[in-house]
Design a protein around this nucleic acid. Structure first.
Lengths: 228, 228
DNA sequence: CAAAGAGTACGAACTAGTTAGTACATTTGC
DNA sequence: GCAAATGTACTAACTAGTTCGTACTCTTTG
């Protein structure tokens, strides 16, 4: 805002210095847009406001994204892509199922906690009944990955005899998501209604532990629940 | 919508017919506003649209509520009041703690399910970081009631030796809320990402059962978990 | 190898339509 | 008669989207 980039000179792949930088401009716009949409919603965000916070201009937003909704969809896709890339970092290969599940829940809890902007985008998208997610196309990529690790863990846990039978991996995923998502999405009203800062480090620590425990107690056979 | 009230003639308490009906007008405006805000958000809702769907006019909205935000706060308060009144119908006095908890979870699940408009209002309020809830005042009334029944149930369950010790009633409430709230709030994106209608009667039935089971398994001592 | 041409990237100012809020006059019920 | 309730018509500000013109980069051609 107060740092006028004297020239938007950047290095392209071949090393030639250039003033024009399409990819950089696009990315910059998307990042600013994501922030604004996450903060104010689709109708609440202002194109002029987004443009002002950009290194670029309103003209460029329409040049690259066509419309406000087009920009919103791009920002949404970008948010999902980022989060999915983050999820890929979770490494639970080779862990025994009980530990793997524990790590998965902890990871999801932390991951959601760290990506509030993404959570808010999903909230907003749900307010819009998911219509932009639907018309986007990135969704196709997401469904396989997200549910994959739980399916693997659950199958292994069943085979090892530590998990109880008859559960649906998708429902387990649903439960984990619910607990971790709500923790970020409803923090404001929850804190205000109960007059307690649910977002404080101490309370988050406690909620994290309880969340892990709740999932494990649900999935793991009672007699196998040792030092959880 | 297709039933045009020929005259806005309503009966007041004393039975006299009158054209003017301040309370009725106010309530009618609030109900329409709640619908519109829940559907489109604070910035997405249009005062002219709300006015058009009312039996009254835009003039009256400003006459009674002062501003768009004033109307929003009133609609929000009304939503909370309604839901709280609904919650009062839950009767678990005298039930053994395990059954009481089960009923409480089932009730919360169903209640959230049936009040999508309220859920959406809370989502929107969270997008706004709960600032309107804060500046409202109705909150004070809510905190005591909402957490009260869980506290009572948990204390009784502890005394009876069926619940495990060391849990925080507020956290139990948080978990139940998370599971029941998410079920309504994130149905759109969840369904679209996994290509499955999570809102279908069959799936809801299953989720309801799993939710109850999850909470009970978390709270109840392992050896007391008989035919849950 | 320089000049012309073509397509992409970008900026400033403008426009048409929308939207929250208001001024003023009028009706209604006591 | 009088205060509360209500209808009509307006406005000032905002906002998504556009127009027109320019600069930069790469390619083609003589």
């Amino acid at each position: 805002m107060s740092t006028p980039v004297s020239t938007s000179r950047t290095k392209s792949r071949d090393g030639a210095s250039r003033v024009q930088d399409p990819e950089g401009t696009k990315q910059n716009i998307i990042e600013v847009a994501a922030q604004e949409f996450a903060l104010n919603g689709l109708s609440g965000a202002r194109i002029d406001e987004i443009a002002a916070k950009t290194r670029s201009s309103k003209r460029m937003i329409y040049y690259y994204f066509g419309s406000k909704e087009g920009l919103y969809v791009s920002a949404l896709e970008n948010a999902y892509r980022q989060v999915r890339e983050g999820e890929a970092k979770l490494d639970i290969e080779g862990l025994p199922p009980l530990d793997a599940l524990k790590r998965l829940v902890e990871f999801t809890f932390d991951h959601h906690h760290q990506h509030e902007e993404f959570i808010r985008m999903v909230m907003i998208e749900n307010i819009h009944h998911g219509e932009f997610l639907e018309r986007s196309g990135v969704i196709r990529d997401l469904n396989v990955t997200a549910i994959g690790s739980i399916e693997a863990i659950y199958a292994k846990g069943l085979a090892d005899g530590v998990f109880r039978a008859g559960l649906d991996p998708l429902e387990i995923h649903w439960q984990i998501s619910a607990l971790c998502f709500f923790n970020v999405s409803n923090r404001a009203t929850f804190s205000k209604i109960f007059g307690k800062d649910v977002g404080s480090a101490a309370y988050q620590e406690s909620l994290r532990r309880q969340t892990v425990e709740m999932v494990l107690r649900f999935v793991v056979k009672a007699e196998k629940l040792g030092g959880v």
